[in-house]
Write a protein that binds this DNA or RNA. Structure first.
Ligand SMILES: [Mn+2]
Ligand SMILES: [Mn+2]
Ligand SMILES: [Zn+2]
Ligand SMILES: [Zn+2]
Lengths: 146, 146
DNA sequence: AGAGATAATGAGAATCATTATCGCTGACTG
DNA sequence: CAGTCAGCGATAATGATTCTCATTATCTCT
């Protein structure tokens, strides 16, 4: 379970001439056990700290930066004053998010529905590399719809 | 020129039981003279400071927060560590942005091409209130295309 | 005009997230 | 067994934003 995720990270670390360390492994495990969530650095730090009490915040930030650079972690902004991180497959940066303005919950929209839009944009001479779409609103639960 | 923008702000200020002050007017003028741009608080502060040297940063932040609350100023995040502000018509929150990762320039996409996407989302029970779409890439100029 | 009530301001401190610095340790190299 | 050096933790520093508080401007009612 999670083998492949860990292996992918190990592979990328080697390619980048970086080592796997106990700290990095602890962060990796937390990320992997929380796939699908969109965590803040602080949330990640607290979870890692739980299993490795001596780890420092700076190491967590460094590791997040490293993993993001390796392309296995997505660092994203949701119009808050801080970043959130989501672990996952390489190509997951092309999905969208629904954020509930009431409870803060972030859900995902699996399909990438922007292909035609991006094609239009490229016709104007702008080379599209990535995109970020967040839809704000109220989730079904907060609306009392079941 | 810019009459209507100023008038709209005056109107909203009254509705909210707030006064127009020289400081707020200075910020407003700077915003209005820079319509179409996506400025940081610091950029705005420097421009305002130029015409009102005694103004403080805190007042600028307070005013930006106030204007955003009045719905005449859009406070947006572009995956940087700070916010940018754009002044404009009330409904301009439904447009999209193209950000060049090389020069940082932000261009706009006038059409809102997300209606069908949002309709789909609403079918899932999520009530859409707003959205933010930023497309990252390289602008024509940075690509050397004329 | 004067007095009091209240809103707004400017300076600077405080806060929050993030990044840089630095001395140390521990794993590999030769 | 040194020697090197990436990675570490503690802590200081930074940058953006917000808060606090004493002072000032504005408004209202005499
Ligand atoms: Mn996601
Ligand atoms: Mn815009
Ligand atoms: Zn909700
Ligand atoms: Zn460019």
């Amino acid at each position: 379970m999670g083998e492949m995720a860990v292996n992918r990270v190990l592979e990328r670390l080697q390619q980048a001439n970086c080592k796997m360390t106990p700290q990095r492994m602890a962060v990796l495990q937390v990320l992997e056990e929380n796939q699908g969530r969109h965590l803040t650095a602080e949330q990640i730090f607290l979870m890692v700290k739980h299993r490795m009490p001596l780890i420092g915040m700076a190491t967590v930030y460094r590791t997040l930066e490293l993993f993001a650079g390796l392309g296995v972690l997505n660092k994203a902004s949701f119009d808050e004053a801080r970043f959130r991180y989501e672990f996952g497959e390489e190509d997951r940066h092309r999905h969208h998010h629904l954020m509930c303005v009431e409870c803060g919950e972030i859900a995902e929209l699996e399909e990438d529905l922007l292909h035609s839009l991006e094609r239009q944009v490229e016709e104007s001479g702008f080379q599209v590399l990535d995109h970020a779409l967040v839809i704000y609103g109220r989730c079904a639960r907060c609306r009392g719809l079941a």
